[in-house]
Nucleic acid binder design. Structure first.
Lengths: 340, 340
DNA sequence: TTGTACGCGTTATCAA
DNA sequence: TTGATAACGCGTACAA
């Protein structure tokens, strides 16, 4: 049994009210008593019971976080989990502001039998952050109607209490394609993520727009992966099978993992990169710098995205701004080459 | 204001006690009432208030997790954070067993002004998992004397309620060195982590033992890094500066990040790997497969380590076993070569 | 300035 | 089988 304010009150032979007030530095209590109480509390190694405080204050000071996996679940054990990148920002921002982070896993029974929102409501979290939310998630409608403030990274959902933090995908796609275009590429393929991720649709939209504006869009050069390395590899194989005439000179991949898979496939087919084909990825994961050739990519500031997601929930003024776009950067490395 | 059992009681004109019992499937209540209550609860979209439940049951069902950074803090934003690997295991195991995960960040003010244990006590967590705990941590003594069950990944601390989960470092070091030894290497250097990490000391101990047993230990070939890539790079520079006669033919690095830094340094000095020198890392991070040459390394099963850390806390029988060693594997890739 | 009494939402005890 | 009451630890009107 731990020490409570009652124990302190008994020790000093005063009321629990006095102790509570003293510990909370209320001004309707003498400095003398304050210091006496604090001293004894210290001596007795008292820790306030947050649970009781939360109950009486009707405030949990907690934010729920759902790190779902963008990639297929069976692969997150091997590959870099991009979702955790956001977590760094989420964590620091929350703790800095005095909020606890309650973290939920993807494939727990918890989530399978209870909805995200039920988990949140039961714990009285004051907000929730989602990463990796898919469009075929069974609880989407519920999120839309949430009475709890929610911010979702990389998935836009219309809803009173739902905010959106994402990379400025239009800027990102344009930076990638501008880079390729300026290198002379006119025949550009896209290896996209799966359709269950909204960013796939969005990135495709801007991809299409960019090339259509330049009369260079070819729907046959759009391939669907699932963000994983494997899927990139498989899409690349299809590209390799194309007639030399129809083969694109460059590929824009919607994730670095897929880009790495693509590089692998080309290597396995004894085709050199960037000589045979140029590749641009998306994410700027750590590994991208170390593949051969090193990967040109669009860098997402995942940590800042995590921070903003939290800010949006906590900060009232922020909540009026329900869409936040983080600027991406083009990271030039060696997987692209000027066309001759 | 959310719905409480009181609201349900009013609605049905019965007592809150009856509602509570019905919702908890107590057997001293009629099936008829049970189903009636459950139906109404459903209709009213009732969610139990976990906070109140926890207060009255005096059970938080929560585990605290501290992901501290093994690498220097300023680098975790760029480099792969190995700590998050453990998190996957911790999360799934906890949620599976019905426990919530409360996650704390490294450099929050929270941790700076309050001790880890104070944070835990206030929140009444039933156990805590630490990763990346350093030997110069100011709260070490407090952890040792913790009244709350604690499991620490990769740092052994003697203490009534303190458990230890780690890779079997002796096996790991031996696998690495046996591999090099069998390739003919006799002049082997070590690039270790900083001394603030216990695994550094342990890995060094077995490194020394292995080579002393074979009369091949040379203390001048032991270098101290800090697990980061930079530090590996710098240690490698020192090795490169050595006379050709004294230069080792192989390096064992205590982390893959350092190993990658080493590879970089050698490349920058126009020295080929594995021709000039063989390298074995530790961790098996994702990137290791993609550096050139790909990195031979000792694979840690971080996910299993996370799971065990949680099991140890929750499972009573497990807690009697306070040390758990997870088997590492040698992953042979291209950074080692037979000596001629 | 201090203390009494009540309530937060829930469960447990015991009486009806 | 059901319900009144107390309790968990704390904060807060309001009274003293």
């Amino acid at each position: 049994m731990s020490i409570t304010i009652k124990d302190i009150a008994n020790e000093l032979d005063i009321s629990v009210t006095a102790v509570s007030k003293a510990l909370n530095d209320r001004k309707d209590i003498s400095d003398e008593l304050k210091s006496k109480v604090k001293k004894v509390a210290e001596e007795m190694n008292y820790s306030p019971n947050t649970i009781a405080q939360r109950l009486v204050n009707n405030k949990s000071n907690t934010i729920g976080v759902f790190v779902l996996s963008r990639q297929p679940e069976e692969k997150i054990r091997e590959e870099e989990n991009f979702g955790f990148k956001f977590l760094t920002g989420i964590l620091e921002e929350s703790n800095k502001r005095g909020y606890d982070i309650l973290l939920f896993s993807t494939n727990s029974d918890l989530i399978k039998e209870k909805s995200y929102l039920k988990l949140c409501r039961e714990r009285k979290v004051e907000g929730a952050v989602f990463t990796g939310l898919r469009l075929d998630d069974p609880h989407l409608e519920e999120i839309r109607n949430s009475e709890i403030p929610i911010s979702i990274i990389d998935t836009y959902i219309e809803g009173e209490n739902v905010g959106y933090v994402t990379t400025d995908n239009e800027a990102g796609v344009n930076k990638a394609l501008n880079h390729l275009w300026s290198l002379g590429h006119r025949n550009i393929a896209m290896v996209n993520g799966h359709k269950k991720a909204q960013i796939s649709k969005i990135r495709f939209k801007y991809f299409e727009k960019f090339l259509k504006n330049r009369n260079s869009f070819n729907p046959e050069l759009v391939f669907e992966g699932d963000f994983s390395m494997d899927s990139g590899y498989k899409c690349a194989q299809k590209i390799i099978e194309l007639d030399k005439d129809h083969r694109p000179t460059a590929i824009f991949a919607a994730s670095d993992l897929m880009a790495i898979g693509i590089i692998k496939a080309f290597k396995d087919a004894n085709l050199n990169i960037p000589e045979e084909i140029s590749i641009v990825g998306f994410d700027n994961i750590f590994t991208g710098e170390y593949v051969k050739p090193s990967l040109t990519t669009i860098s997402q500031n995942a940590i800042e995205m995590g921070e903003k997601a939290v800010e949006m929930i906590i900060n009232e003024s922020f909540r009026s701004q329900k869409e936040i776009y983080i600027k991406p950067e083009l990271v030039k490395r060696d997987s692209c080459k000027k066309i001759n």
